[in-house]
Write a protein that binds this DNA or RNA. Structure first.
Lengths: 202, 202
DNA sequence: TATAATAATGACATTGATGTCGTTTTAATT
DNA sequence: AATTAAAACGACATCAATGTCATTATTATA
């Protein structure tokens, strides 16, 4: 006559699956991840997990959406309190100091991008996500222009995409190279120089 | 008392497997490729194919080695007949005009890079290969310096790696985006500008 | 033409992951 | 305490791919 548990409880469950999944995706990457892992990690049953997420793809997309929501909020406050160029530098340099696990998860994401190219669901999601990232960067740059910090010498959306490309490239390579073989720090410095000159930072 | 067939014949067979495999890797990507595909495409038997290549990984690595040998020769003549900067521009701009299938194969390569991060065999191969590419670019730049074409404002090997990173990034993105969504042409132009300025082209 | 070495075949055992579904358990309501 | 809606369980059928190996076919030599 009544639902067995509260919405809250279900949300809790969902979250605990997502949390466990994130850890496993980070550790093993996307392809190697199997549902069994999440079943063991949460202690739930096969059917239980499947009642929350239809499959691995659904699980991963939900995870990305969840993360996106979080970081979106954080960024808003960051921007309101700092110069745009300082914010950008902060984000970029964060990549240098990122936890190993952050890089590992970024790798899993790249892997997902690639492996999902034949899934129309995932592809649509990825295109939206790319668009979102690109738009976000554009709006960041435009805000900088409005505030008089930048006068770019290339179309804003090209700069934004160049930015994304560079970090996608770095993400892949960090998968199979140690950061000193890759010279990622130095590459990031070079990139930051180019970014500054494209934006015409004053 | 005699081997059944000539070395030539075996080499021929090997080559025909590689050729078929390349086409399939291009079409389907690395992960989706299964040995059955190559068996059907060549008309050989399962055991036959396996007697030439131990598994998918072995097949793909052999394919890359074969390709590398080919392009290495082509490049040598290119360099001897042109200015280094013109050669570099040619290579970069080739990316713009590349056949769709070339991009597709590049995507399969990126996929291989990522999926093979837990295979020590493949990882070692990839590290060697990255080193080779990086060294090749370095020697290209150094030749340019010797000829008085360049005076770079950053360490040569950082420039080389930056180059590789950019194209790796572009390869990934071209997997799930059309080139006009990606603005790959414009990104390449931006990149070429940065490359020119890093190299101090005269 | 016989034979010996080996290339080529394809059926098969094995593995591992997936998603489903009939059953059992649980807890909110009466 | 009894009822009942639905949450959770886990055994299972299914599928797809892998690599092996006993058998068969082939061809260069004797």
């Amino acid at each position: 006559m009544a639902p067995k548990v509260s919405e809250e409880h279900k949300e809790q469950r969902r979250l605990s699956i997502l949390t466990a999944a994130k850890e496993i995706f980070t550790e093993k990457g996307y392809e190697a991840f199997v549902m069994q892992d999440v079943i063991e990690a949460t202690g739930m049953s096969r059917g239980g997990v499947y009642s929350y997420f239809a499959n691995k793809e659904d699980l991963f997309i939900s995870l990305l959406e969840h993360k996106q929501q979080q970081s979106s909020n954080e960024l808003d406050t960051l921007i309101s309190q700092n110069k745009i160029w300082d914010t950008i530098k902060m984000i970029v340099l964060d990549f240098k100091n990122a936890e190993h696990s952050d890089n590992q998860f970024a790798a899993a994401q790249v892997e997902f991008n690639i492996l999902s190219r034949n899934s129309s669901n995932a592809k649509e999601f990825l295109q939206r996500r790319y668009q979102w990232a690109s738009d976000f960067l554009c709006s960041l740059i435009n805000e900088g222009i409005k505030r008089g910090e930048f006068s770019p010498n290339a179309p804003v959306h090209h700069i934004a995409r160049y930015y994304i490309t560079f970090f996608d490239g770095l993400s892949i390579e960090s998968i199979f190279l140690k950061s000193q073989e890759l010279n990622s720090d130095e590459q990031i410095d070079l990139f930051l120089g180019h970014l500054g000159s494209m934006l015409g930072v004053k």
